[in-house]
């Protein structure tokens, strides 16, 4: 009989979702009864953060809704890698309509369910950052302001990956994309542009807005479970590294997601009715440089003559997040 090596997971860390924990505190991913909503066999790249994020989020939503869940999906990687007919990875009723209308389609599903008195069935919409913060933003804002009973999941990998890594309004400054090449006086994506949709969602005063990363499975599942039980519009913005688009090792997806949070560039928090109610503190602050260095999309900042001025501008953004959201727990330190 061949030897099956048992990996050792240290309990008590934020990455553990496994079956070594007590049953009552296991993650949905760690349970045998998880729904595998986005089933194996799909065509996502190795190390795809979006596939992980969607799987974690939807299994948690399925769990808490007792599998009474319908999903509307924007065009994008998630749609393409999961479903070329006749194959589908989706183990829940799922519809893809267009790039820019996932939120509105979900609104329609929610309206139909209300008309039919099916308050037990919950509705999610999901898309990438392009489908959410750019082309789908009008429909998203409409869904928010009407407080439609939909949980919108944005998987943010900071560019249009499906079409070959072009810049979106979620692309951070200095990043190399196919449409923001590292050339000229200001290489990469310019500073002073872009938007952070979670705060715009909060401005709609919807019941629940949160951010999460695929590095913290428990936090992500907690937020999905909480959101799905709230009636009205909910928004969850999930940070999902893209090895291909970022020029990162596929094995670094979780690590990069964790580092983005630990350096302060991606604040993890939750907000209710427009007010921040909880923040995931930075456990061990790291300089942004450590995070940037692992990604070829920032390669032009390093090399023989590092662009220290640009790196410090990025550090300043992280510092501002730390101040704004109170990401450092000064008492504990």
């Amino acid at each position: 009989m061949s030897h099956q090596p048992v990996k050792f997971y240290q309990t008590g860390t934020f990455t553990v979702g496994n079956r070594l924990l007590d049953e009552s505190i296991r993650s949905v991913q760690a349970t045998k009864t998880r729904s595998n909503s986005l089933n194996s066999g799909h065509r996502a790249c190795q190390g795809c953060g979006e596939a992980l994020g969607a799987r974690y989020a939807l299994d948690a939503a399925m769990d808490v809704s007792q599998r009474q869940l319908i999903a509307a999906n924007a065009t994008g990687c998630l749609e393409v890698f999961s479903t070329p007919y006749p194959e589908t990875s989706w183990q829940l009723p799922w519809i893809h309509s267009l790039f820019g209308n996932a939120a509105a389609v979900a609104t329609g599903i929610a309206a139909a369910l209300r008309a039919k008195g099916r308050s037990d069935v919950r509705v999610i919409a999901q898309g990438g950052d392009g489908g959410t913060t750019d082309i789908g933003f009008g429909c998203l804002s409409g869904m928010f302001e009407r407080n439609d009973d939909v949980l919108y999941l944005c998987y943010d990998n900071e560019a249009y990956m499906n079409t070959g890594v072009q810049r979106s309004s979620a692309t951070p400054p200095a990043v190399r994309t196919a449409t923001t090449m590292p050339l000229g006086a200001e290489p990469g994506n310019p500073f002073g542009q872009g938007k952070f949709v979670p705060t715009i969602a909060m401005a709609h005063r919807i019941p629940y807005v949160a951010t999460a990363t695929v590095a913290d499975l428990f936090d992500l599942e907690y937020k999905v479970k909480k959101a799905i039980q709230i009636r009205g519009a909910k928004y969850l913005h999930i940070f999902v590294p893209c090895p291909l688009g970022w020029g990162a090792a596929s094995s670094d997806t979780i690590k990069l997601a964790d580092m983005a949070k630990e350096c302060g560039l991606f604040p993890v928090f939750e907000a209710e009715h427009g007010k921040v109610t909880g923040v995931s503190k930075i456990r061990k602050l790291i300089p942004v440089e450590d995070y940037l260095k692992l990604q070829r999309r920032y390669a032009h900042l390093f090399g023989k003559a590092p662009a220290t001025d640009v790196i410090s501008k990025i550090q300043a953004r992280a510092d501002e997040n730390i101040r704004t959201y109170g990401l450092l727990d000064t008492d504990v330190r």
Binding site: I70, A72, I95, S97, L98, G100, N101, A104, V105, A106, T107, G108, I109, A110, A111, A112, L113, A115, K116, G138, C139, S141, G142, E145, R146
Partner: peptide, 21 residues
């Protein structure tokens, strides 16, 4: 539903019709 655009109107219609309404 008072929607925010005609694009949304037809998109909502797509969702609700697909959900059987």
């Amino acid at each position: 539903l008072n929607v925010e655009s005609e694009f949304a109107a037809m998109s909502v219609a797509i969702g609700s019709s697909a959900a059987g309404a």
